[in-house]
Design a protein around this nucleic acid. Structure first.
Lengths: 215, 215
DNA sequence: TGGCGGGTTTCGTGATCACAAAAGAGGAAT
DNA sequence: ATTCCTCTTTTGTGATCACGAAACCCGCCA
């Protein structure tokens, strides 16, 4: 028996479109309020309208896209109230995820987090907002994977997805020079096995950018 | 200008299908592991396969349906680990929702909750599992609506949706005779403005059924 | 009695098409 | 210069169809 030769020999068309769009939205490559068309998406991924529509509908179910009453598709423009709510959700879910990951966080994981963190510093030096967002989410996901709670992680990723376009608008405006301070606090708390400190550090890291978002 | 005469003159076909299936799943009218077909769904709602497929894909994105590698659609059969995780998510989200609703809970709301609660007692006496589940969720939704946090409420409903078929299997097995004890505790805590008591009561109510679920 | 083939039916996928509604462009009237 | 109207283009919706693969049924063989 071959071990995992290619478990996905023929990925379906709608899944390719879904994954492609999802990545761009989550990583902030699409500005808020950007209009999309089914035919355009289909042409871009070289498929017909049918799989494009399925991908769009799935993404709108996850809050990654909004569909107007007339069916027009666009990236969401979030109100301040909704942004605050989504940040509160991030805090709620991610504090729990970090807390559950803590007892399973070995030294190898911590080293991996430090490695990601140093690459975040490079992205900041390069002023690459998209790479920064992607790497920042990789930092969080790497930690939360250790919680072994896939449904909870999926919910957190759904929140990231909804905040994607808005985060781009934020970090494009923000001229950051230093890597995120609270990431170092998270790593320290992990090393020390300090759960209250970890919860506070994660909450602070998630909440930190909120002040600049609310205009 | 007419005030809200009929803001929805022509509901789209896929939305009708989506809402119909979603209600049945959330209220436990479909057993876990039940197989569905796109053509069957289309025939039932009198539409073609296209809107049926969109509705199914949206529901699978929300975890209300599972799609096998060959594309077959069925209601999910949850493992014990996933059930525990979803119950933990319910506790996390709903405790927060209740806490946010507390300062806005006027007497009219509390009376409405009591009214729903007494109707739950009737459903129990009638041994009507579906009505019981629906009314129980109505109790929780009525409270959480006061939190004025639509994204958070939507996440909680998504969790209910995923647990729908499993809850049916549980409450069908369980021969309950008394209305849920913790609902009375929730109402008492609301009356007293007792936030810690409210959080504990909600958490207990959500967690209570778990013991029987895990075989 | 229990497992194994082979043919048949059923099913999901994705492309295409007709239709209606919405958006956009461009000019005329004020 | 601005508003309004009309014609054209663009867009989403839903039905239909061909195709390939998966599931099913039923009889055969051990």
């Amino acid at each position: 028996m071959l071990l995992n030769p290619r478990p996905d020999p023929a990925p379906s068309a709608h899944d390719r479109v879904y994954r492609g769009l999802r990545g761009r939205i989550m990583h902030g490559e699409l500005a808020p309020g950007l209009a999309l068309t089914l035919r355009g998406i289909g042409a871009e991924f070289d498929v017909s309208m049918t799989p494009a529509r399925e991908a769009v509908r799935r993404l709108s179910a996850e809050g990654a896209l909004t569909i107007s009453s007339s069916g027009r598709v666009s990236t969401p423009e979030l109100s301040n109230e909704r942004i605050e709510e989504l940040v509160a959700l991030r805090a709620l879910l991610e504090v729990e995820l970090a807390s559950r990951a803590l007892p399973r966080a070995h030294i190898a994981l911590i080293e991996r987090l430090q490695s990601i963190n140093s690459r975040i510093a490079e992205d900041i030096a390069r002023q690459d907002a998209v790479a920064y967002i992607r790497r920042n989410l990789e930092f969080h996901r790497t930690l939360y994977l250790r919680a072994q709670t896939p449904a909870m992680l999926a919910m957190a990723e759904t929140v990231w997805l909804q905040l994607g376009p808005t985060m781009r608008a934020l970090y494009g405006r923000l001229r950051r020079k230093d890597p995120p301070h609270y990431h170092r606090l998270i790593i320290s708390a992990l090393k020390a096995g300090d759960e209250p400190g970890l919860r506070l550090a994660v909450r602070s890291d998630v909440t930190q950018g909120l002040r600049m978002l609310v205009t």
